[in-house]
Nucleic acid binder design. Structure first.
Length: 816
RNA sequence: GCCGGGAUGGCGGAACUGGUAGACGCGCCGGAUUCAAAAUCCGGUUUCCGAAAGGAAGUGGGGGUUCGAUUCCCCCUCCCGGCACCA
């Protein structure tokens, strides 16, 4: 019997070969076509989980495939190393976050190598290292100089018992996860990056990004949410300051029957001072977390403030309410309400007995009852005085003109997108490079004092940031005037690190500059792969940072990622596998049992990359079984001895058929991997070809030659997915040069030719027969053959043939 | 609540541009091999009717367009992701 398949042996051998030959280390070579293949880098949580294995394998398959296409491929790896889990681990185990993180990185690097990924480790990036984060501190100070960052008050979740800020994830059903106390909203000063300054560019460029999935582009478009509307001001009885609101439906202005302000609005605060009921309501509104989903789903509540706004057109008094669904942080903190033509306003008005006025009628003249159902479509104005009869555009312009003329408002563009709050009241992050001085205000740390190094050897208790307890960290002199000053103790949102790491892989060792000419060679990323959960935030922040770096003269590229593949989640028990939920499956055990190739194969075969994959232990074994069959087929074939070269003239029908299958499969897998990212069907096609090889019962020289060609094709084409077994089998097939330096197989068109093809015959769209026709038969011949079929005759017997549809190469449909 | 995605045999999935629904694999059933088991190999496997030939139904639910719909359009249900401090 021949050598059995021993993954634990051949996998280490292959990995040793790649390591010795430094197969995956690349330098900049302007003569070669570069291909930068990247996955979203992992958070070093301690162990790889199946989601990691899935995304890294997808990317590795693409990288190895592109290499076989002759491209100069860079595939780097690094660590998104700052974040909350390190702080949680520190609390639980009493280990400093840095120590825990570095240990995890060591462990996970070993796991990645055991999976055989083709990484250039010489470019490894770790975001919690000062030599990395110094450059985002530096860029922040440049943005400060340009006015692209600013400080303002902003809402956080406040845990009144633990006296600490909570992340949204740490709020469970409105309560702090550790204290179980009701969470409150609290305003504190925080740093913001002006992503809104790039809103139009980020939006417009989406139209020129064919390499991104439509779903992601649509999500980003909606997130930016550009709208054209009108800003209007309403006077408030007894107040000097008017109330300004923004609306995209100025045509409904005459239907305004109430207005509402946020609980934090100055008008609400003023009334609350004298009215205990209002004060209580305002206080109640404060006792909720800051997540948008919470605010949008909670019961809509409100109270009349007892004061009125003056309708700017009619001069009528409109009651002013305070409501929990109006947010101080969006727009002006006040809205006009049109119950007749807005769903939420209609429901609120019904509940509180507020008047509902119809001011828009359907354009087709249909009568509607506005008391029975809201009407939100655009239409023709009614009950609107001078504006009656106008359509949406006419009314929009007339009303906008009126407000512009009277100086009480006018056309404006609004974005849903808000500036990016980057301050975090946490320890394990990159320090924000700012010093507060009583005389000079907020002063950016000068370039020669960067980086601001985060002290790594700390006592971490979990109550507040250790930085606030470290005078040696925060007691500094003002860089401008030299007086005693205080260093910022907040750190950056970890999304800041992940917004530019892709460019730093090109030059991770540069201590003089953030980026250099090597980045110009490698960027943009040709293929970026990562989870769909990052469709908006990470990808939008990265697009923003790329532009900030461009405008700083660091790069000429505007877009960081030319092609994007968003892989679906790995789910278990119907939910996303994540360390936070604790429903992970350990890949390590499967590798020990079956080897890395089996795990890689199963991940690629179980589902298409973009769909969610519900984990199941069944099926891994099937992948292992296939690899054993694959191994045995090649080893047994090779054991018989060398083969002759193929002479197409001497092949019998069975040989020809296998050869056709070989070249059809090369065409299919090339398309599946190269164009469609359809790895599951590529694997299926390779399995089919191997089944066909095993079925060909021929020991002739010609037969063995055809089998040899098929087996070589399978080894080459599966090598991006299962590189270790293919590395060994390639040698088994008699090759001296290693597989890693081979190119992708080519289709021999002449092998694909067929004399007879099979067509499907339908009668009235139902399948009734199959007929074999010459490949070059014309429609008349095909029609005759189809009608002549006995079973077809049964169904058309005695009926008139009304129409015959011939779809060349596919089917004939006879309509009777 | 809003935005994006999904639903196909017992299970994962295939059908790429409107043209054979169920490729490939898992599981299951039967057989071979074995003292026996594991492993391996061969055959079968959407459901219903039928000995078979063949027929009928069938892609989450309801409607529509078409010679023909898993695919396009409208309405609905359920599930997943995101919602700005999880990464």
């Amino acid at each position: 019997m021949s050598t059995p398949y021993k993954p634990e042996v051949i996998e280490l051998e292959a990995q040793q070969h790649w390591a010795d030959a430094r197969s995956f280390e690349v330098s900049e070579n302007p003569d070669k076509e570069k291909f930068y293949c990247l996955t979203m880098f992992p958070y070093p949580s301690g162990k790889l989980h199946m989601g990691h294995v899935r995304v890294f394998t997808i990317s590795d398959v693409i990288a190895r495939y592109q290499r076989m296409q002759g491209k100069h491929v860079l595939q780097p790896m690094g660590w998104d190393a700052f974040g909350m889990p390190a702080e949680n681990a520190a609390i639980q185990r009493g280990v400093p976050p840095a120590e825990w993180t570095y240990k995890n990185i060591e462990d996970m690097r070993g796991q990645l190598n055991r999976l055989g990924y083709a990484y250039d480790w010489s470019r490894e990036v770790t975001t919690c290292r000062p030599e990395y984060y110094r450059w985002e501190q530096w860029l922040f100070t440049k943005m400060f100089e340009k006015g692209l960052v600013y400080r303002k008050n902003s809402v956080v979740n406040w845990d009144p018992v633990d006296q600490t800020v909570l992340a949204n994830e740490q709020v469970i059903d409105g309560r702090g996860w550790r204290s179980d106390a009701l969470v409150e909203r609290r305003e504190i000063p925080q740093w913001f990056m002006k992503i809104t300054a790039y809103a139009d560019e980020l939006l417009d460029e989406l139209d020129c990004m064919p390499g991104w999935p439509d779903s992601v582009k649509i999500m980003q478009r909606n997130w930016i949410g550009r709208s054209e509307g009108v800003e209007l001001s309403f006077d408030v009885a007894g107040e000097a300051e008017p109330l300004t609101v923004y609306t995209t439906r100025p045509d409904t202005l005459m239907g305004v029957t109430y207005m509402a302000v946020a609980a934090e609005h100055p008008l609400a605060t003023k009334v609350a001072a004298d009215d205990a009921d209002i004060a209580e309501f305002v206080e109640e509104c404060r006792k909720t977390d800051a997540a948008e989903a919470t605010l949008e789903t909670m019961e809509k509540k409100g109270m009349p403030l007892g004061i009125s706004a003056i309708h700017p057109l009619t001069g009528e008094e409109v009651p002013l309410w305070v409501a929990n669904f109006v947010l101080m942080s969006y727009g002006t903190g006040a809205v006009m309400a049109v119950p007749g033509h807005d769903e939420r306003d209609w429901e609120f008005a019904k509940k509180h007995g507020i008047e509902i006025k119809q001011v828009i009628a359907p354009a087709d003249g249909t009568e509607i009852d506005i008391q029975a159902a809201v009407f939100v479509d655009k239409g023709v104005l009614v009950n609107s005085g001078n504006y009656d009869g106008l359509d949406f555009d006419g009314a929009f312009n007339a009303i906008a003109d009126h407000f512009e003329k009277t100086g009480r408002g006018g056309r404006t563009v609004n974005y849903r997108l808000r500036d990016w709050g980057v301050s975090r009241q946490r320890y394990w992050g990159a320090p924000i490079p700012i010093i507060y001085c009583d005389d000079c205000d907020a002063v950016p740390v000068p370039e020669d004092q960067l980086p601001v190094v985060l002290p790594e050897d700390v006592e971490f208790t979990g109550v507040g940031s250790p930085l606030r307890e470290m005078p040696e960290f925060y007691e500094v002199k003002c860089p401008r005037c030299g007086k005693d000053a205080r260093r910022e103790t907040d750190t950056f949102d970890t999304f800041v690190e992940s917004s530019w790491y892709f460019a730093r892989y090109a030059c991770p060792d540069n201590n003089e500059a953030m980026l250099d000419e090597r980045a110009a060679y490698w960027t943009p990323v040709d293929q970026y792969t990562g989870g769909i959960e990052h469709a908006i935030l990470h990808l939008l922040y990265s697009r923003f940072f790329q532009r900030v770096m461009r405008d700083e003269g660091l790069t000429e590229e505007s877009e960081p990622f030319a092609n994007l593949l968003t892989q679906g989640m790995v789910l278990k028990d119907g939910a996303k596998m994540s360390k936070a939920k604790g429903n992970t499956v350990d890949p390590q055990e499967l590798i020990a049992l079956y080897g890395a190739d089996t795990v890689r194969l199963f991940m690629m075969f179980a589902a298409p990359p973009e769909q969610a994959l519900e984990w199941s232990d069944d099926g891994v074994q099937g992948s292992f079984r296939f690899l054993k069959r694959f191994w045995n087929a090649v080893v047994e074939h090779a054991a018989v001895g060398p083969v002759v070269s193929i002479d197409p003239g001497v092949l019998d029908e069975a040989d020809k058929e296998l050869r056709r299958k070989t070249h059809q499969t090369i065409a299919k897998i090339s398309d599946d991997i190269g164009r469609r990212n359809s790895f599951n069907t590529a694997v299926a096609a390779a399995m089919e070809l191997l089944n066909a090889v095993n079925k060909l019962d021929s020991d002739s020289d010609a037969g063995r030659a055809v089998k040899h060609e098929a087996l070589e094709a399978v080894v080459l084409m599966l090598s991006p997915i299962v590189p270790h077994i293919c590395h060994a089998l390639w040698r088994e097939l008699g090759h001296k040069t290693p597989l890693i330096d081979q190119t992708w197989p080519e289709v021999d068109e002449s092998a694909l030719e067929m004399e007879q093809i099979e067509l499907v015959v339908q009668v009235n769209g139902k399948l009734r027969a199959r007929v074999s026709v010459p490949a070059d038969a014309d429609e008349v011949t095909i029609e005759k053959l189809a009608v002549a079929d006995a079973n077809v005759q049964r169904f058309i017997d005695g009926k008139d043939i009304r129409k015959v549809i011939v779809v060349p190469g596919r089917l004939v449909n006879i309509v009777v």
